[in-house]
């Protein structure tokens, strides 16, 4: 095994573990918002790490791999938070309210804003 294979393999395994944790988070968390949290963060770093690892492994044969890998990586790093943000807002406007333990009104600052908006529409 060459040095590139060792470093790239490390990134591969690390990334796949984070992808697994993302799947586990999706499976275990109690409501949509917490699922989004676990899913977005873990899969973003996981996918970035796996793609970067593949680029590193191929670096000793062909440098074009890592350039294409960086394109995919940057695209995922930008698109993943945007889609999770769009989903979170859509879920809130679709009247799915977050799971809150203590039933404290201050814990949900966004509800105030939505209620004000509805009052203005009326």
């Amino acid at each position: 095994m060459s040095l590139f294979e060792i470093i790239g393999g490390f990134f591969l395994v690390l990334g796949s573990i984070f992808l697994f944790l993302g799947g586990l988070g999706i499976f275990r968390m109690p409501d949509v918002y917490n699922r989004l949290q676990a899913g977005t963060k873990a899969t973003t770093l996981g996918a970035m790490s796996v793609i970067f690892g593949v680029g590193i492994i191929q670096l000793e044969n062909d440098w074009t791999w890592i350039v294409k890998a960086m394109v995919i990586l940057i695209f995922i790093a930008f698109s993943n938070p945007i889609s999770s943000h769009a989903l979170a807002r859509a879920m809130y406007k679709g009247k799915t309210y977050p799971f809150i333990k203590s039933k404290d009104k201050d814990m949900d600052a966004y509800k105030e804003f939505i209620d004000n908006q509805k009052m203005e529409e009326k």
Binding site: F18, R28, M29, D31, N34, L45, P98, I100, D104
Partner: peptide
Amino acid sequence: LINSNMDVARRVLSPSLPINPGI
């Protein structure tokens, strides 16, 4: 980003799910 992934890993893997969510 790395810190947040460690955080997610800790929360997801612990059996009691230590969360206290809010907005």
